[in-house]
Design a binder for these strands. Structure first.
Lengths: 327, 327
DNA sequence: TATCTTTATATAAGTGCTTATGCAAATTAG
DNA sequence: CTAATTTGCATAAGCACTTATATAAAGATA
């Protein structure tokens, strides 16, 4: 039983559930031992019907934060116990108006002092803890409202995953034996074939670069970047050196299974950093206007759309972006 | 939704339940969105099996504060997911020893960082509240352990009910018209017949007193006490004046429906007070040794068992008690 | 004014526990 | 050493909610 406590923050849910159970089963025991025909779960609904005198199912659900089926079910129990009445609203026959019956009012006379005792008992319990537990609960609720656990965890997980992604370069002066370089070449080729085939067709220029990156990219002063995630090549991108001393970002591909881990972004930043490091201030890319996610990614790392002056080497390239070094 | 908050202490259960739900559903969302085949409810059991390496169902239940069927069910899910193994213990074939499988260990590698993120997120949330929520929870748990809500409410309810019981005397100089006195006589008679018939048979002496209390009790200097609860005569007792200037407490009866409200005790105290007020120091009663609850009641208000010297007027009287005025 | 959408409620099934009970193995008592 | 009791686990059913979906009335749209 102490194990739950030792788990600390991570078992908060279980611990809260256990505490909740104690409150609910105790309330049930109280009604039973006082021989009152009532159940804890009926409380909020019955209480609110009495307070508002007349209210519909949906209104109850909204005010109590229950789902509508929950209120319907509770109301049905109250009706079967003849504690409340339900009549259709005249103007809108979908609505059911709930009111307390005579029997319900009689029961209320019995219940109110019991509720008073429960309230005082909880108040007493809380006083003994020395904390304003109700206020702490409110704080917890409002902080959760601002940002729930799911969002918090997702942020952390994403961050962790990004940190797990390692970017490395493959250029003319990279170390590694032939076998390793062959493996990298294969990854570069396969990753790119995969997405090109998915959306377009493999063009002549693609084949040239992908089948012989050493000669076509590296030897011409370009660099290939790889993203490693969990001992696996998860993405790649190429920085091509052009004759006019500008660079082109091309052949960026990320493995489908690792989407959402910001690998593309990380590759993009690595490419940009490299260009800056090379003291160059001309970097562009060409893509297809239909690839919205990719374009959004490029925008997010600092590329801006420019006019497509000269026709591209690629048929699919209909959209040109330049990196803005000034921003 | 705000209504629950307004209810304050009395809706603590509901409020805790809602908070609990948020924690659990968020955990579920996290596993889903990370594509991990796991559920929140499996957490504690799976975690503990891994920590202890090898543990039985009952041990888990004890350490986690779950019921045994709950652990059995959770373990079965874990087994069906092939995350744990179960083998019978050699020495005691009733016991099932649970251990993590290879697949379970693989999943753990995925889960541990997620759990870490959850833990950090909850920690962060709690920091934002500005309270040591975990400590507040511990306090709440330990105060509940000392005295639970049920006990607290019962104490308050009992006290309230006792206060609602009013004792009044019916003696030669009591006010009230003939009809009212007749009604009191009827109550005195019926209440006593009821319990005498239940355990013994009505004796001649009973009949004399019950059919004519005015002549047989009041006119001889005795007093009849009534307990009124919710506009109803709920109990009665007679104080009989004896020839040797002592008093006898007799004919004490409490209506069945109002048992447990300490009405007998309150009647007893009223009788004792009266005797003291009359400057008398001899008060006794006779009852039957088999009526343990009654004897306990008498003891609790100051009566002590004494030897039964003379035979009683009643056949059923086998047990005599004197009130101890010295204590 | 016919259709399409929205709203109010009902119904069904699922969830994660619980209590109640059954059964077989182990232990204790006479 | 048998018989009664206790222990460990399984199974069934219940509880207090949930989500998903159905149904019918009301309101909006064209």
């Amino acid at each position: 039983m102490n194990t739950i406590k030792q788990l600390g923050y991570i078992a908060m849910g279980t611990r809260l559930r256990m505490l909740t159970d104690k409150f609910i089963t105790d309330a049930d025991k109280i009604y039973n031992s006082l021989d009152v025909d009532f159940e804890p779960r009926l409380f909020t609904v019955f209480y609110l019907i009495n307070q508002k005198k007349s209210i519909t199912i949906t209104e109850l659900a909204e005010q109590l934060g229950y789902t509508q089926p929950a209120v319907t079910q509770i109301a049905n129990v109250l009706i079967s116990k003849k504690l409340i009445n339900s009549v259709k609203e005249k103007k809108d026959s979908r609505k059911k108006i709930l009111t307390i019956t005579k029997k319900g009012e009689d029961l209320l006379l019995e219940l109110i002092p019991v509720w008073q005792d429960i309230e005082n008992s909880v108040k007493e319990l809380i006083n003994e803890t020395g904390y304003d537990v109700l206020f702490v609960l409110s704080k917890l609720e409002s902080e959760l409202e601002k940002k729930d656990i799911f969002t918090r965890v997702m942020e952390k997980t994403k961050k962790r995953q990004i940190e797990e992604v390692k970017i490395f370069e493959y250029s003319s002066d990279s170390p590694g034996d032939a076998l390793y370089k062959k493996e990298l070449n294969k990854n570069f080729r396969d990753l790119n074939y995969e997405w090109i085939k998915k959306y377009f067709k493999v063009e002549k220029e693609d084949k040239k670069q992908l089948e012989n990156p050493g000669k076509e990219i590296i030897e011409k002063g370009g660099i290939i970047f790889f993203a490693e995630y969990k001992d696996m090549i998860a993405g790649t991108a190429a920085l091509l050196k052009k004759e006019d001393n500008s660079y082109e970002l091309a052949k960026m591909a990320v493995r489908d299974e690792v989407q959402g881990k910001q690998i593309g972004k990380k590759l993009g930043f690595a490419v940009i950093d490299k260009v800056k490091q090379l003291k160059c201030d001309k970097l562009y890319l060409e893509t297809n206007a239909s690839l919205t996610p990719a374009i959004n990614l490029y925008k997010s790392i600092g590329f801006e759309e420019v006019e497509m002056k000269d026709p591209s080497k690629y048929e699919r390239a209909t959209f040109r972006m330049n990196y803005n070094f000034k921003k």
